[in-house]
Nucleic acid binder design. Sequence first.
DNA 1: CGAACCCTTGACAGAAATCAACTAAGGTGG
DNA 2: CCACCTTAGTTGATTTCTGTCAAGGGTTCG
Lengths: 246, 246
Amino acid sequence: MRPTDLAEIRRLSLFRDMSQQCYEQLTRGVYVQHFPESLTMIRQGEPADFLHILLDGQVELFASWGDRETTMSVIKPIGTFILAATIRDAPCLMSARTLERSRIMLLPSANLRQAFRDDRGFAHAIVDELAGCYRAVVRHAKGMKLRNSRERIASYLMRQAQLAGDVRSYQLPVEKRLLASYLGMTAENLSRALRGLEEDGLKVDGTRVIITDPIKLMKIAKLDMLMDGPDPSPTTEAASLPKATA
Amino acid sequence: MRPTDLAEIRRLSLFRDMSQQCYEQLTRGVYVQHFPESLTMIRQGEPADFLHILLDGQVELFASWGDRETTMSVIKPIGTFILAATIRDAPCLMSARTLERSRIMLLPSANLRQAFRDDRGFAHAIVDELAGCYRAVVRHAKGMKLRNSRERIASYLMRQAQLAGDVRSYQLPVEKRLLASYLGMTAENLSRALRGLEEDGLKVDGTRVIITDPIKLMKIAKLDMLMDGPDPSPTTEAASLPKATA
DNA sequence: CGAACCCTTGACAGAAATCAACTAAGGTGG
DNA sequence: CCACCTTAGTTGATTTCTGTCAAGGGTTCG
């Protein structure tokens, strides 16, 4: 591992509060690796040998059953994945693949568990991160069960506008087929629903989203702090700080 | 708190590995309380002042949005709830109400956080429990996104039969309306779907479930370890041990 | 006995998936 | 540079699934 990587990682909220000794122990056997686009690096059902920390790029977590597949989450830097499986030493419930070329830190599960025992600061950072992941899935499940597809789309797009700094227009951060899967619908349905939302203050042209009438759109989206955030995970918190410039 | 309660709690996997000193500190300010049936003790959006540990009875976790409501989980002894909110000191994402008269232990969040810092065994038990909760929600979300209602019903009923010891017949553990909500459909739809499954090896008479043709039914259920368990949470582990008599 | 409440059933409307065809954009190789 | 191929996205027609509304049967409980 390059020394510059080590210095960078040390600053992550996960490791910030560790004693130097534990940190050195932890990062023994850690390495940072580049993955090309569209590479499935974790397959559901496999053991979780490493905690993955995304430093650069984008990773999709997805789940399959038979020949069906659905996107569960999209990880952006700095974000972790398969933390729970690592802690439990249990098989991964989700698969992971890169959406673009990505730089990922691999932290052996044994090291993680050791550091969890040895360092209180780290233990706290881990449990905080995991609690954040838990709450994110609960939100996702709530959205799936309480909103119909139209409402899920509207709330997703409104929320993205909020996160971008309450803008009226922005670029979709992911492909539409992926978004459709994440929102639990087919690509065809997303396409049609977007068209249908033009009468409710939304315009989508290619990857460009334009909220023409926020009030009207909000009547459908009905954003809810308990379903649409905030409550960032500690690692993503740092990444989304730029928005605080307003 | 009664001394017998204290002794009982000490044996829970959450507290088993704690030092006596930390345990005494932790349980200072803890109390055990009885709640009548159908009492909503936690409302989503409220702060999480206590970790709840269900000792006896049954508790429903549910979520609402506008005038809609859905069952997210049913807790049985011994089980914890609102752990993540407690750890993060964040508002609860779900509400909780008793399904029957219940005995619940209330552990002040401040005590929990203190004990997490002071006792490694406890810290590990907490993170293990939380990881289990996370994996349970991931499973729930996968089920909602990857299976249709017919398949969700079949897999739920098959899984219950498995848990009861691979029996062919058993009693539904919850009301049908609740089950419908948990499985993400209306009560009417559940009723119709159950009827429809009679041609696939299932018979339901009142609260009695009879699997007349396990092989046929399994072709619909397609139980999957990554969606239907196992992977019990550490606290529920003790509760489901009886099944290990085989 | 009446009043809830749970469950079921039927008829219908609306939502969403599927199948098929078509466009547009991007990349490849000649 | 262009012909070709792949892929994302769109659109329409159709079927399937699911929710809604309304009514009725059965239970429990005061």
